[in-house]
Amino acid sequence: MTEAIRFDANGLVPVVIQDATTNEVLTLAYMNAASYQLTCETGEVWLWSRSRQSLWHKGATSGHTQRVVDMRLDCDSDALVVRVEPRGPACHTGATSCFFQSILPGSATMDQTDKAPPIPAAQVSEGSPSIAPPEVKLVPHSALELGILLDELYALIRERQAKRPEGAYTTYLFTAGLDKILKKVGEEAAETIIAAKNEPRMELAAEMADLLYHLLVLMVARDVTPHDVAEILRSRAGKRRPLPTE
């Protein structure tokens, strides 16, 4: 079906995301061929982030994913409407729709029935860097970028678990079972400790990457999501923890 879509010179097509029940417009975003294919395969909205230049599983971090009900191509074949069942707010601010501000002369600046609640800077997860609070400086290699990459890797690992492609290392781990996965997590944790004591910074980073990958495999194996972990971390934010007794 991708051959029917007229992608622009950058390989993108604008996408209007609409609530299938209320018909409210939720978001305007973009897809490329890969995100369109993932949307068709998974039944959930995948997009292309122009600011991050990466695939974006809508709601993967917040848990507010969007189940696709219908997709429609316009008469010029260069724009899509994706009708969805949203599992929570569409906007990173917490508003139901990204279009909550009225700029019609003489009107209120914001529709008070859907006023976006203020959110701490640390909780901005899916929005474009251009609309992040001013105090947030999103730079390459930030914690936000790492979170996005881990989300994408988590989604890929889930796909490997389901499809078990031949020859893939992830397939090998799932086929070997939980004990093998746990053994690898232990080995990578030990190698990270050794690297922290003895190796240069980027060697340590490589060991940390291996450990994070195997932790994600364990998460998929035990049906723990990044959202689950994020909720625990968020609940602990700012809380004093008891000092160790030893």
Results as ranks from 00 to 15, higher is better:
70 D>I: 04
105 P>S: 08
141 H>A: 13
126 E>T: 03
81 V>S: 12
21 T>V: 10
148 I>D: 04
48 W>D: 00
44 E>W: 09
77 S>M: 12
64 H>R: 04
133 P>L: 08
140 P>R: 11
112 Q>P: 07
210 D>P: 02
96 T>D: 10
182 L>G: 01
234 R>F: 03
234 R>N: 05
150 L>E: 07
185 V>S: 04
191 E>S: 00
114 D>K: 08
51 S>P: 08
27 T>Q: 14
41 E>V: 04
137 K>D: 05
50 R>Y: 11
159 E>D: 05
226 P>C: 07
110 M>H: 02
1 M>V: 15
163 K>Q: 14
72 R>S: 15
197 K>N: 07
177 G>K: 00
118 P>D: 13
27 T>P: 00
181 I>D: 02
66 Q>C: 05
211 L>W: 01
78 D>P: 10
219 M>A: 08
178 L>M: 14
244 P>Y: 05
50 R>M: 13
238 G>M: 09
16 V>L: 09
225 T>C: 03
219 M>S: 01
150 L>P: 00
59 G>V: 03
204 L>E: 10
13 V>N: 01
116 A>M: 12
30 Y>R: 14
4 A>R: 15
239 K>V: 08
27 T>M: 14
23 N>T: 07
225 T>M: 03
99 F>P: 02
161 Q>P: 00
177 G>D: 02
186 G>Q: 10
206 A>M: 02
66 Q>N: 02
10 N>D: 14
34 A>H: 09
75 C>S: 15
158 R>H: 00
182 L>C: 14
125 S>N: 15
45 V>R: 00
205 A>L: 13
66 Q>T: 05
151 D>T: 03
95 A>Y: 05
157 I>D: 01
49 S>R: 00
175 T>C: 08
182 L>H: 05
116 A>R: 03
122 A>L: 11
122 A>H: 13
67 R>Q: 12
184 K>C: 08
103 I>T: 12
76 D>V: 13
145 E>A: 13
204 L>S: 08
138 L>R: 04
186 G>C: 03
246 E>A: 03
204 L>K: 07
86 P>R: 03
215 L>H: 02
103 I>K: 07
60 A>R: 00
129 P>G: 09
150 L>N: 05
92 H>K: 07
15 V>F: 02
244 P>N: 10
209 A>D: 13
175 T>F: 07
26 L>A: 01
190 A>M: 10
184 K>M: 15
6 R>H: 15
201 R>I: 11
151 D>S: 01
41 E>I: 04
75 C>E: 15
